[in-house]
Structures are given as C-alpha cells and as structure tokens.
Amino acid sequence: MKITLQLFGAFRQFGDFLELNLPEKGRVSDVRSALGLKVEARDGLISSSRFATETEVLNEDALLQDGAVLAIIPPVSGG
C-alpha cells in the first residue's frame, strides 16, 4: 500500500511531501521505518517525530488505509 507524507520543519529539506510504500495493513510504525530508509535525516530526528492527520496525532499502532495522507510532526517550536 502507498501513503503520502507531508513534510514540515527540518524535513522540508526533502521536499514538501513523499510517497512511501508500506506493507499491507500498514501502521504508523511502518511509516517511521519506511521514512528512515528513504531519507538521511540528522540523528534522532525521525525517532523524535510523530505522525498526524489533519485532526489528530496518531499512536504508533494506528492502522492506515491505502492512499492515506499523513503529516510528519518533528519537535515543535511555536510561539
């Protein structure tokens, strides 16, 4: 299955979004693994990031649908 990942913050260096291939019945944890194989982010950046939809931050075991659009949420610094 395929998902689209919108990129923010320090991940902008890799573009505005990435398409990732996941195993069937993929979960958020699979997105994290697939991203690690696709980009060379600085140490600890992927592990310190979360994944979200437009309305909520997801847990690692959340199941995803084929074609899902997620966003990566690296450590935040608003204000």
Partner: peptide, 15 residues
C-alpha cells in the same frame, strides 16, 4: 510531542 495524546481504537483507520 508527548506520546499520551489520543487513544486509538484497535481497528480505527486513517486516511
């Protein structure tokens, strides 16, 4: 971000 945000149901799907 903390990891204690929303609890996700076992079979909930996102997309």
């Amino acid at each position: 971000l903390c990891t204690h945000t929303h609890e996700v149901e076992e079979h909930r799907h996102y997309g």
